[in-house]
Each structure stands twice: as structure tokens, then as C-alpha cells.
Design a protein around this nucleic acid. Structure first.
Length: 590
RNA sequence: UCCGGGGUCGUCUAAGGGCAGGACAACGGACUUUGGAUCCGUGAAUGGUGGUUCGAAUCCACCCCCCGGAACCA
């Protein structure tokens, strides 16, 4: 049955549909799975799988697939396998297997005992290949790669059959055995399925099933000299695992006829079906493994877990939570229209999550000395400040206050407009959780730069509210100079400065090598200001013993996460996950 | 040009012959000891043409536009 034959408008289905809205994300795949389950297809079972190739790190696009596959299983009482699609020894490494496991687990999914490798099936796949040769449905082609390519034809010309296409079965069998043993060199022979060289579908023009590769495989070592191609291995691996719904991205739509051909030809006990959905694209970043690899290898970022990267490892280090990423995946939906999701949607998801769960603290990133002239030198008092503005359960903390403080340099303006609520000569502001201060004098150095603010405080405003009820609009964050902890803070911005860094003019007929060079064009759109390192930042003392990975909101600035690294001076390093929404900044732009 | 997909607010996504809805973004307002958060509100879409129908985003026809496909990658 093809997707279009589905009886989706039967009275029974319509009745169930009415009840659908109160169940998970209603995407077309979810509906189809529900439909299949209802109709008892696949024996009423649901088995999905997440099939990464261990040749790089997982990114937010993979998260979409992980959430889809594992989510479907969770919602419909099925299971989801983790399968490493490791059929190309030249690209794959064990370290990527480890990283993938860690990232899937971190996202919050559990595959239990169901961890598989395509390489587990090499022996079975080979036996099936032999059977296809015996059945006259596959043959060893001894043509060179160029000849095979030439013989395949193109969109306008039909292919021509290989001169080896009808060679005796026994001959192919013997050759295949030699290929497996390593008696032949790469390029000397391949195993091809015998389908139709004149098909209008290029994929059906006798596709390759096996090629010779003498690289060591991360799991099977040098046991094999031949490795199965994706089209031959993938669907049959699904069949072996009893996968019912094999979900993949749109670019594999063209492979579906082949997927089905191999299943039909081999006739495994179970028949999985492939369903395609649109892969995730995100504005201001790249989501192709090739491009990410390029950024890493080229030193444009500091590694796969660079906080500017959309990799799960990078997002984790940046301070993203798995919950926010899952919420994001729920919201973007699943469909067959390829598009670009606005990165602001991801940013919204993390702000929303962190707003609820992050304790607040004060940190001054660009310190400006503020001296309270009418506060006794050497005296210290502590203000009790809530750790969260709306959730009392976060508790309170004691923040030390004294005569010399630091405030944010950006919170002072010498010639301030009337709608400026912060510090300026003669103006009064509130120090968050502490008191009201008025700026009485601006101290400058020889170069004319502001180096210190002299202020007076209102002792009757302890806690932050004036005794006379006068209105004070601005509220600033601050730290006590003598108690503050020095730290390094890294501010991240979008990695690229254009919405779609991958967009390039398309030239279908250009040579492959030139296409590859052009593919590097995205590097010209790198945002030179994607990382700003701030040294000499001052944190309130409660942040001194924050463990690595600890997330906190620096009030009025954004959400920050303690990094595993420490600065050259041995101080802690904090990463900015995402800035707070800044309506003043937005207003100031205009 | 051949084969396979896809076109709904700026973006993502619902509506499966019966009021085109939601989220993000934008804009405006209220509130505020974070110019935060929250709340309220505004603007904003069915690629085109014809047809079927009481009624079409939805069905039919033709056209247009976009994406993928000619790797011994997945």
C-alpha cells in the first residue's frame, strides 16, 4: 500500500480524529502511526529508530529527529532503537559513537538494550547479497568508476548496460568472494543490483550494493574488505530490527523506490516502510555535518563543543537545557515543506525555560567604581535579596554592601536623554535589593574618561524603597568592590551575520570540485564578533563556589552558565547562554 | 530538460468541502525593586487562472515558483 491509498476518511478514522487534539504534537507522521496502529498494520507494533552515522557530532537538527522517533515511541507505546549506521569505515570513529550516546542521553532519551550497529549485520547482509546474485538480481561489475558513471547516463540519456551485467552467476559469486577477501583493490570491482539501466529514475540504474574499502572499521577492524552501500544496508537493517516506521529526511525520498526494491528482492520476514520529513534548517547558522566539520577542522571555532555551534555538545556548554531543546522541537512541528526556522524561536525556548528555573544573582561585566561618600568607610552590611523574583521557593541570600561598589559602565551616561532611567549626573537610581543613590560627581582621568562616580545614599531607603514614596524608575545591579569575585565572561553572538549562510547561486552543471570550493562560501559570512571575551568582570560572592555547568541569571543581563574552562589567571569562566530581552536597547537603536 | 517532492501571516505550523487558528517575530498599552517576567491589544497569509459545489486552503484541470536527484557518502 502506498501512502496515498490509505483509507483516512473512513467513519472510524474520522471519529478517532475528533479525539486527537488532546494528544501530543499532531504532525502527519504521528497521525499516520496512530492510523497504522488502529488498523493493526505491522502487527499492531511500533518500532522506530534513530540512525546516526558516527562521523561527527549530533546537532539541533538531529535533536528534531531524536525527539520525533523517541517521542513517537513514547506516545504510542512503541520502542525506539539507537542504530549506528556505520557502513563507511573511512569516515567513522569510535569517539563519535561515544559522543552520540552521551548527547542522546543528555537530551533525555533512553534506548535501553536497543543499541545496534549496521556493522552487526554485515554477515547477514553479505548472505543476502549472495542470494541476490544467485537469483540473477545482482552482479559483480568489473568496470572502472568512470565507466560506471558514464554508463549511468543522465537526466536526458538512458543508461547503458555494463558488459559484465550478464556474466555467469558463478563468476560473480567467485569475484564477490575475492572482493570480500581483499584479493581485489578498490575500484576494480563492485557489486551492483540488476534493476533497469533505462529507468527514468536514475537511482534504479543498477545501483551499487558493495564497494571495496581497505580502511580499518571502528568495530570490525580489517575483517572486511567490502562494505555495503547505504541503499542496500539501511532498509534491510530496519527489517532485521523489526522497524515499522523508518523516518528519514526529504533528500531520501528519491531513495524510497530502492529501499523498497531491496526489501522486495530479499524478502525479509518484516517489511518496514520509509516516511520522509523535512530536515531542520535554522537561521544564522549551518546544520550540515560537512560544514560543521569544516568549521571545526579549519579552526574557525574551538571544537565540536564550541558554545557558538548548534551541536548538542555546544549548546550544552553554552548553557542550553535539554528541556528547552525538546520544547523547541515540539514547537517547530514536522512536515514535508522545507524551510528555515527562525533562530529566535530557539532563543525564546531557552529564555522561557531558564526564566523559570534559574536563580538570580548580580554580576558586573564592565565595572565602573561607585563611591558612596556618606557611607562610613570600612563598614559592611548585608542585604537579604530574593533568589527569584516570583518564586519564593528559590529562597534568599545575603549580599554584602559597602562604601565602594561597582556598577555597570553602560548604566551611566554623562549627557543622558530624558527617557534614560539609569545613572547620570544628579540623577537618582535604585541599587537592586539595597538602597537609593544619587550621583553627585563624576571623576575623570587625564584622558577625560570617566573612572569613578561619587554618590550619596539615602539611609532611609534600605531594602530599595524610599521612606517618602518618591518614584525612582531605574534599578541597577551592583557588587561590593571589596567582596566581589573576579571572573572571565564570554559573550556569544550568532556565528554568522546573514540569515542563510548556506545560500549560494546554484549551477547544476559545474564540476564537482568547483562545487566543493563554492561550498566554502559560507565561511565568508562568519560573524567576526561571535565571541567577545570580557576579563575583569566582578561577581557577587555567592557565585564563588558555583559548580561547572551551573546556570544563573545575571540580573538585567542574561542567563549565564559556568564553563569547564578557567581563564589564564585561574579565574572562573562564565558563558552567556542568551541575553535578556532588551527593550531599552531596541528603543535606543531607533 | 527527465524523475521525485513541496507551495497557508515576516518565520514555523494548524484547519482533511462549512468562521483561515496558534506560536515566534513585529508594533502598541498596562504593570513592575531586572527597561526582565507577566497581562492585554494591533497589524499580518491560502502562488496564479479556470472549473465542480449552496459553500473550496481543501476536489479537478492547466500554468508558475521552490527543493531534492546523475557520490564506489549517509
Amino acid at each position: 500500500m502506498t501512502p496515498n491509498d490509505r483509507p483516512s476518511d473512513t467513519p472510524q478514522a474520522a471519529g478517532e480524529d475528533a479525539a486527537r487534539p488532546d494528544r501530543g504534537p499532531g504532525n502527519f507522521i504521528d497521525e499516520r502511526v496512530a492510523d497504522d496502529l488502529r488498523a493493526g498494520r505491522h502487527g499492531g507494533r511500533l518500532v522506530t529508530r534513530f540512525p546516526p552515522e558516527p562521523n561527527g557530532f549530533l546537532h539541533i537538527g538531529h535533536a528534531k529527529s531524536i525527539c520525533l522517533n523517541f517521542g513517537l515511541a513514547e506516545r504510542h507505546g512503541g520502542v525506539c532503537n539507537l542504530r549506528f549506521d556505520d557502513t563507511n569505515p573511512e569516515a567513522e570513529e569510535a569517539r563519535y559513537v561515544d559522543a552520540i550516546r552521551r548527547d542522546v542521553r543528555w537530551l533525555g532519551f533512553d534506548w535501553g538494550e536497543r543499541e545496534h550497529f549496521a556493522s552487526d549485520y554485515f554477515e547477514q547482509l553479505y548472505a543476502w547479497a549472495v542470494a541476490l546474485v544467485r537469483a540473477g538480481r545482482a552482479y559483480v561489475d568489473s568496470q572502472r568508476p568512470e565507466a560506471i558513471r558514464e554508463g549511468r547516463g543522465d537526466f536526458h540519456r538512458p543508461g547503458v548496460e555494463s558488459p559484465y551485467r550478464d556474466r555467469p552467476v558463478e563468476e560473480s559469486l567467485a569475484l564477490l568472494e575475492q572482493m570480500r577477501r581483499g584479493a581485489l583493490d578498490p575500484g576494480e570491482a563492485v557489486l551492483r543490483a540488476k534493476i533497469d539501466m533505462r529507468s527514468t529514475d536514475l537511482k534504479l540504474r543498477d545501483p551499487l550494493m558493495y564497494r571495496i574499502r581497505k580502511a580499518a572499521h571502528h568495530r570490525t577492524g580489517t575483517a572486511w574488505s567490502i562494505y555495503p552501500m547505504y541503499d542496500f544496508a539501511h532498509g534491510l537493517s530496519d527489517a532485521i530490527e523489526g522497524v515499522t516506521h523508518s523516518l528519514c529526511t526529504l533528500e531520501f525520498q528519491n531513495h524510497r523506490p530502492l529501499y523498497e526494491w531491496f526489501i522486495d528482492a530479499v524478502g525479509p520476514a518484516h517489511r518496514p516502510e520509509q516516511i520522509e520529513f523535512a530536515r531542520l534548517n535554522l537561521s544564522y547558522t549551518v546544520l550540515s555535518k560537512r560544514k560543521l566539520q569544516r568549521l571545526v577542522d579549519g579552526g574557525y571555532v574551538e571544537g565540536w563543543d564550541d558554545p557558538r555551534l548548534p551541536t548538542l555538545a555546544g549548546l550544552r556548554r553554552r548553557g542550553y537545557t535539554p528541556e528547552a531543546i525538546r520544547a523547541f522541537c515540539d514547537r517547530i512541528g514536522v512536515s514535508k515543506r522545507d524551510g528555515v526556522v527562525d533562530v529566535t524561536l530557539l532563543e525564546h525556548a531557552i529564555r522561557e525555560d531558564l526564566n523559570d528555573r534559574s536563580p538570580r544573582a548580580m554580576a558586573v561585566l564592565r565595572p565602573l567604581r561607585l563611591v558612596i561618600d556618606n557611607y562610613p568607610d570600612g563598614e559592611v552590611e548585608h542585604f537579604e535579596v530574593p533568589n527569584h523574583p516570583t518564586e519564593p521557593a528559590f529562597g534568599v541570600r545575603e549580599v554584602p554592601f559597602s562604601r565602594v561598589l561597582y556598577v555597570e559602565r553602560d548604566d551611566f551616561m554623562e549627557d543622558a536623554p530624558k527617557n534614560w532611567w539609569r545613572l547620570a549626573p544628579g540623577r537618582e537610581v535604585r541599587l537592586r535589593g539595597a538602597c537609593l543613590v544619587r550621583c553627585t560627581e563624576v571623576v575623570k582621568d587625564a584622558a577625560g574618561e570617566v573612572v569613578e562616580l561619587r554618590c550619596t545614599w539615602d539611609p532611609a531607603s534600605r531594602g530599595g524603597m524610599p521612606a517618602d514614596g518618591r518614584k525612582v524608575r531605574g534599578t541597577l545591579h551592583w557588587v561590593s568592590a571589596a567582596h566581589a569575585i573576579p571572573a572571565e565572561v564570554r559573550l556569544y553572538d550568532r556565528l554568522f551575520d546573514v540569515p542563510n549562510p548556506s545560500a549560494t547561486e546554484d549551477d547544476r552543471d559545474e564540476p564537482r570540485a568547483e562545487a566543493a570550493a563554492r561550498d566554502d562560501a559560507f565561511l565568508t559570512h562568519l560573524n567576526q564578533a561571535s565571541l567577545e571575551v570580557l576579563e575583569g568582570c566582578r561577581l557577587e560572592p555567592s557565585l564563588g563556589d558555583a559548580p561547572v555547568g551551573h546556570r544563573v541569571q545575571f540580573e538585567r543581563l542574561g542567563y549565564f552558565c559556568r564553563d569547564e574552562a578557567s581563564s589564564s589567571g585561574g579565574q572562573a569562566v562564565w558563558n552567556r547562554t542568551i541575553a535578556l530581552k532588551d527593550s531599552w536597547g531596541k528603543q535606543a537603536e531607533r
